[in-house]
Nucleic acid binder design. Structure first.
Lengths: 172, 172
DNA sequence: CATATATGTCAACGTGACTGACTTAAAATC
DNA sequence: GATTTTAAGTCAGTCACGTTGACATATATG
């Protein structure tokens, strides 16, 4: 396989611009809700991993607990997430979206999902497969497990994770 | 084409994790050089667009001139970039990497290029094509032109842009 | 000559990350 | 049962990097 530096730099720029334009979709909605990107990330992952613990979320986001605690405090104050003590281990706080949290989360990703769906359709199923393969190759071992958790969870019940989480239902 | 919400969310997470892990490669080097991500971006794009003007760079980066000016001041002070007044329009400042700038830029992207090259090889040529197609579909009109400029420039001379810019030469 | 443009600068501010130190409650281990 | 580890939270200070707004200067353009 022929890999000129030029080709690699093109790939880097594709990632840069695509990621930026992808985030921009959500930024507009975030501004409406007076939330920041950090809130979006927290809402998203709590939605995808209902009953996740604080430390679990910390591992996904790879930020410090001091950073996360401010975000969670905001979201609790806004009535978007709920914390329930663990039954087995009462030190843990299990996080979940409230009805309002689910609504805001869907609102935040709606445009992003539409954009990605359009890109997927334009590119075709084979291209999507390549897209996934390359990105997966960029992801480090630790994060790859986070993604696999999604898939395993979906496999367990035969249901999409999102649907089980109460964030999905609509099916695009 | 079958697009479940679950599939779209997987794509979003792939982007999130891949982009984060990809940046992490450069962050380690940035820390060694005591530079931030903003410096990296400036060095990169100046390297790819030699003699770019300040306003040209502003359009690529989509930040304010106040933000950029601090970064450029740092890079000038560190001897990594040079500013030369425009000949045709003497208000303009054309930016270019110095020898030191080229060296640092190569150092910053070396690991990233290696990682992307590995991902490309593992995934195969067809997958790379799909990767490019999907990302291009995520990119907005304005940014798409920035990317096309790369390609057109390369086509003009039959040489990779990077090589003409003095940043490329090595070929992967 | 008047106006628009390219660049730079001063000041203030916001977000979201960081380190470091310390607390509390509960679980786990010796 | 006492000790240690773990999960979570808090207080305080800092930093990188983006923002808005106001203004200054040189040069180009009508």
């Amino acid at each position: 396989m022929f890999l000129r530096e030029e080709d690699l730099r093109e790939g880097m720029e594709l990632l840069f611009f695509a990621y930026r334009d992808f985030l921009e979709e959500a930024d507009l909605v975030l501004a409406r809700h007076k939330l920041g990107r950090a809130h979006h990330r927290a809402l998203y992952f709590i939605g995808q991993h209902p009953a996740i613990t604080v430390s679990g979320l910390l591992k996904l986001l790879r930020i410090t607990k001091q950073s996360l605690s401010r975000v969670l405090a905001d979201l609790v104050a806004l009535g978007m997430i709920e914390q329930t003590p663990g039954l087995r281990d009462r030190r843990q706080r299990h996080l979940a979206l409230t009805a309002k949290g689910i609504e805001v989360e869907r609102d935040l990703t709606a445009q992003q999902r539409a954009l990605l769906a359009r890109a997927y359709r334009q590119a075709g199923a084979e291209a999507v497969d390549g897209f996934r393969k390359v990105l997966l190759g960029l992801i480090t071992e630790g994060d790859r497990r986070a993604l696999m958790a999604r898939r395993d969870q979906a496999a367990e019940t035969g249901q999409p994770v999102a649907a089980r989480a109460g964030v999905g239902r609509a099916g695009l």
